Simulated scan of single mutants.
Amino acid sequence: MKVLLLGASGQLGREWQRIIEAGYGDEIELITYTSDGLDITHYREMSDKFRNQKPDVVINCAAYTDVDGAEEHRKLARKVNTEAVLYLAELSNELDFKLIHYSTDYVFPGTKLNRREFPEGYHETYPAEPINWYGKTKWEGEQAIRQTTENHLIIRVSWLCGQFGSNFVKTMLKLGQERDELQIVNDQWGSPTFTENVVQNCLNLLNQEANGTYHITSEGLITWYDFAKAIFKVCGTKVNLEAVDSNAFPTKAKRPYFSKLNTQKIEGIEDSRIINWQEGLRKLLRQL
């Protein structure tokens, strides 16, 4: 199977490479492109490379992910997260490859009421209602895929963290070495998604020839404050943590108060495995 990976230098892209090189080298021919090596908004170049490579699967890990930056650079965010994704879907139809695309918990409204209504998280079919421009462009990208090609997997993740790139866990580890006290938001609820678990479940979905939209995150419901407290406890780092509300850290883009993703659908797929967030954290910290 020939797999073409876009956005290969990001958190998910690098995890895909690590796992395929470690265990699937005989089964998967992996061709990687960083965003510098292949800009998905350059349609002619992308089309030429796809026609030359003839992939069976294209994994799109490229995205405009600066949530606050998207509020200021709206055209660029939409170009990357919506318009380029539509073109990928059109190429999927034309060249007959499966498109794997990553989306976000930010497509949902994330209200405090929703937390009480859906303690296990949002189902895949819950109506999208993004509250910031990043979420809006990601939702439009999802819709572009659904309306263009059936041969796709749309994977929604939340609070993504892993060995590579920047994320909350690595930021906490750094700040824990530099400061004795930290203020951490305690009114945003969700669950971290660990990149290794994402890739493993995506490989299983590929093996099962699944199509459609799936949520992948970990079991449990916590705040960022809970997450930080657990990170320092596992590491044995002594830091005084103060729980604060979101308004202590004003941002250009509104953040959801609740962004838990329900994983019941993927748990119904044979050989899938959703891990508890504490298990995922302990494993990630060992890897780091």
Rank of each mutant, 00 (worst) to 15 (best):
R44M: 10
S158W: 07
D105F: 07
Q147V: 00
T263V: 15
R286Y: 10
W189G: 01
E117G: 02
G141W: 00
H42L: 14
T213Q: 08
R14T: 14
D26N: 13
I131L: 13
S246Y: 01
F258L: 05
D48C: 03
V57Q: 11
V157K: 04
L288G: 10
D226K: 02
I222L: 10
R179V: 11
Y102D: 00
I184K: 02
V58N: 08
I19L: 14
R115C: 07
T263R: 01
D245H: 09
G162Q: 02
K112T: 15
G135Q: 05
Q208I: 00
I154V: 15
W133N: 05
C161I: 00
C202H: 03
N132V: 06
L175I: 05
T193Q: 07
Q163C: 06
N167E: 07
E124S: 12
N204L: 04
P119Y: 15
L6F: 13
V185L: 01
M1C: 02
R179L: 10
L206D: 08
R44Y: 13
A62T: 15
T149A: 09
E129S: 15
D48F: 05
T111P: 03
P256Y: 02
I145R: 05
I269V: 15
T171F: 05
C161N: 10
P130G: 06
Y102M: 02
E178I: 08
E267P: 01
L221S: 04
N201H: 13
I20A: 01
T41N: 04
D56T: 12
S158G: 12
L261D: 01
F232E: 11
D66R: 12
I145Y: 07
A63D: 08
G7D: 04
Q200N: 07
A84G: 09
Q188K: 08
A144R: 14
P55S: 09
V107H: 05
R116Y: 11
E72W: 02
A248T: 10
D271Q: 10
S246L: 09
L91N: 01
G176S: 13
L6W: 05
W224I: 01
L153P: 05
T104H: 12
N93M: 10
I275W: 02
I269Y: 03
G37L: 04
E15F: 05
G176I: 11
E140M: 13
I275Y: 07
I184D: 03
E270D: 06
N204A: 01
Y214M: 08
Q287F: 03
T195E: 07
A8M: 02
L288E: 14
S246C: 04
P250S: 12
F258W: 11
E90P: 03
I154M: 08
Y43V: 06
Y122C: 01
K229M: 03
